[in-house]
Computed example of a mutant assay.
Amino acid sequence: MSQPKPRDPSAPRPANQRGAARLAAVQALYQMDVGRQTLEDTLAQFSAIHVGREIEGEEYLPADADFFRQIVSGVIKSQLQIDPAVDTALVDTWPMGRIDATLRAILRAATFELLKRRDIPARVVITEYVDVAKAFYEDEAPRMVNAVLDQVAKTAGRDNDPAKTR
């Protein structure tokens, strides 16, 4: 039996690549919402420019390009299921149409994963998207994202997920 090769410490870890894909997916979904770009144009633009490169002095981590495409495409294909799930989890005074485009993108991407990617523990999805929210907001928004996603997970039957957040 051969010894496993040590991992190159400078190589991005798969988890980091998925986290970068989630961040890029939120940015792409935001751009589609605000800029009214097509799915094809957005995927092409983000794959060529935003994923794993330096842009205007900002260094983007290498992202899992396939995972990025799965999230963005999945949100678009499942939006008629995703938006009502998010809207139901929001408080009555803040319906989906009232929250800003960045929060909508975060909640849509995370809800896609909670509803359609049962191979990923709910705890991981919620934690990752709360971290994405922290990249954009310093106020109460990350806590709101946590609460809404927790409710989506419960409604989707993911509250018994053994890795669920506490």
Results as ranks from 00 to 15, higher is better:
132 V>K: 08
95 P>T: 00
33 D>N: 15
68 F>E: 00
88 T>W: 08
34 V>S: 13
123 R>E: 11
109 A>P: 08
106 I>R: 07
141 A>F: 09
101 A>I: 03
35 G>K: 13
139 D>S: 14
86 V>F: 04
30 Y>N: 15
86 V>C: 07
38 T>L: 06
46 F>R: 02
107 L>Q: 00
32 M>L: 12
143 R>L: 14
49 I>F: 09
143 R>W: 09
24 A>N: 13
131 D>A: 12
61 L>M: 09
51 V>E: 11
22 R>M: 14
134 K>A: 14
121 P>T: 00
52 G>E: 01
110 A>C: 09
138 E>D: 14
126 I>W: 06
28 A>M: 12
78 S>T: 06
27 Q>N: 15
85 A>I: 05
134 K>I: 06
62 P>A: 07
57 G>D: 02
69 R>L: 04
111 T>Y: 05
128 E>W: 06
41 D>N: 15
116 K>S: 10
21 A>L: 11
44 A>P: 07
76 I>Y: 06
52 G>A: 05
109 A>I: 01
84 P>C: 05
32 M>W: 08
126 I>V: 13
39 L>Y: 01
121 P>C: 02
60 Y>L: 11
30 Y>K: 15
70 Q>E: 13
96 M>N: 12
105 A>E: 03
89 A>G: 07
110 A>W: 03
79 Q>N: 09
90 L>V: 05
134 K>M: 12
78 S>I: 04
116 K>Q: 11
106 I>L: 09
39 L>P: 02
119 D>I: 07
37 Q>S: 15
103 L>I: 02
118 R>V: 01
140 E>C: 07
38 T>N: 02
134 K>V: 08
120 I>F: 04
110 A>F: 03
130 V>G: 03
58 E>W: 08
126 I>E: 07
89 A>K: 08
134 K>P: 05
69 R>V: 07
118 R>H: 10
129 Y>K: 10
55 I>K: 10
37 Q>H: 14
55 I>S: 10
129 Y>C: 09
130 V>S: 03
40 E>P: 03
24 A>H: 04
83 D>K: 14
72 V>H: 00
45 Q>V: 10
99 I>V: 14
21 A>C: 12
107 L>G: 00
117 R>W: 06
104 R>S: 09
39 L>M: 07
129 Y>W: 08
135 A>T: 12
64 D>M: 04
73 S>N: 10
22 R>N: 13
86 V>A: 07
67 F>S: 05
